[in-house]
Structure formats: structure tokens, C-alpha cells
Amino acid sequence: MAQRLQGRTALITGSTSNIGRAIAEAFAREGAHVVVSGRDEARGAAVVDQIRANGGKADFARADLDGTSAASHTLAAEAAELVGRVDILVNNAGIYPPSSTPTTDEETFDRVYGVNVKAPFFLTQALAPAMIDAGAGVIINLGSWIARLGIGVSSLYSSTKGAMETLTRAWAAEFGPQGVRVNAISPGVIVSPDWDGTHPGEVMMQGTPAGRSGHPDAIASAAVYLASDDAQFVHGTVIDVDGGRTGVAVIAV
């Protein structure tokens, strides 16, 4: 069976753990040369070693994407140095501080918008021109189900993900006619290694069609689809991978 991303290169931000790592490993299995990126060099090396052990191609580029243009452009340059032109960019890195509107200070507000919105904006700014010059490229953003289904916590985080979903549509209009496809994935409640069955996220999935939280591999599968030629006619869309949480009425159980 042919690998769907054979011969392509990909940069995935925040790919040293969880969803980002799953996307990096899935891309590598499909033949892409992956640049794993994150702040933790040890975790990054572990992801690269695992991909290589499975016969894939991967390198690590350390990055602390704080929202400054310089940090994003530096990562873009390092990725290009490792693999040449980046064919696929996945804007995955993000932070989720546990704060309510009354308890959010200005420093926290600026930090969350810096990491979750400004960093991917300037990284896209840095990498899109080469994609346009080549007449081909893919950008995948990570949104969130709580960008469109309000819950009583995480107003700051959800607003940043709403911004990324809006940028997805705007960038599709801006870059699509020049050969660059831009889409997004909206994950639902995705399990983390430190969760157990009593985590609030598990409770929120009760009564949904899936009836449980999702695994990072579900998001990775959607990312492979959007990055591949299977999605060549898909522009400016947000794919919900959330077990039916936003699309179906949830029945209390």
C-alpha cells in the first residue's frame, strides 16, 4: 500500500507529547520526513528515536514559541535547514491555563494569546511564501470543540481556538488560490496519560455517541487525511473529531 505522504516534509509544533506526538508518528509512518518541535529536548529526542526505530525519518528542532515573530521565524529557518522546504505545517502547540475570567491577569492573557495565536500566525507567515512559490503546501491548525460550544470555564483558551478556526478560513481564502490548502481539526475531549476514569473530561463525554474520551491517534488520522492528496478538494474547513460532542444533542445519563 502506497504511503500517502511519501517524499514530503512536515513541521509539527508541540510534537513531543500527546496529540502532536501522535501526528508526528502518523506522518512518519505515511512516509513524511518529520521535524519534531517543542521545548523539551529529552522528550523530543525520544520521539525522534521512536520514529527512526520504526523506519521513519525525523529530526528535532527545539523551540519556545512565545508569540514573538523572531521565535517563529527562527523555528521556520531551522526546519528548512533540516529538511529543505516545509511541505506541511501543523500548528499544534498550545497552552491551557486553569483560570477563570475574574482570575486571569494581563500577563497570563498575553502569554496564552502569544503561544496559541501569535506563534502560529508568525510561523505561517514565515513558511507560507515558500509553499506559494512551489505552488503547493498544506497548513493544518488545531482548534477545539469549546471554541463553538461554550462551557463555564476556559474562556481565554476557547477564544484563542476560535481565533485559530477563523484564521483557518481566512488563510484558505488568502493562500488557496496559490496552491496552499489550509484546514483545521477541532478535537474533542482527548485522553492524557495522567487521566483516570474520574477526570471531568470523561464525565463530559457521557451521553455522546462515542460515550468516551478520544485517543490522540484519532486526531492524527484526521491530520494525515488533511495533509494527503485525499483531501485535495478540501479548503477552509474545520473537521470535528470529538465523538459527536458538538454535533449531536447530549443526553444526560
Rank of each mutant, 00 (worst) to 15 (best):
S72I: 10
I95M: 01
V180Q: 07
A184H: 01
A22D: 02
A210H: 14
I239A: 08
Q50G: 15
V182N: 00
A22W: 01
E81W: 11
V115P: 04
D64K: 03
R4K: 15
L65I: 10
R52N: 13
F27P: 11
K57S: 13
G244I: 07
V253T: 13
G137V: 06
A24V: 04
N18A: 06
A22Q: 05
D66I: 01
A26W: 08
A10F: 11
G150T: 14
S72H: 05
D66Q: 05
R212F: 13
E41W: 00
A93K: 07
S15V: 03
Y113G: 02
G207T: 13
V191W: 02
P193S: 10
P193V: 03
V115I: 11
N116Q: 06
V241M: 03
T208M: 14
G135D: 03
A70Y: 00
D49N: 15
S72T: 07
A80I: 12
L82S: 09
V34E: 04
Q125M: 07
G135A: 07
F27W: 13
V238D: 00
I140H: 02
D242T: 09
V180A: 10
D49T: 15
A210M: 15
V189I: 09
R169A: 10
N54V: 10
E25C: 08
S192Q: 12
S69E: 15
V112C: 07
W145E: 07
G211M: 14
Y113V: 06
A252E: 14
L5S: 11
L65D: 11
L156I: 00
A128R: 08
D133K: 13
A24D: 09
V153C: 00
V86K: 13
L65Y: 08
E25D: 10
P200R: 02
G214W: 01
Q6V: 14
G152S: 08
N116H: 01
A252W: 09
S69F: 03
T168W: 00
E25W: 02
P129T: 05
G67L: 07
V36D: 12
I219G: 05
R21L: 01
M131Q: 10
E25V: 13
T237V: 06
G201E: 08
S99F: 00
V189K: 01
I139E: 02
W171T: 06
E78N: 15
G188M: 06
A61T: 09
R29M: 12
L167Y: 09
A222D: 08
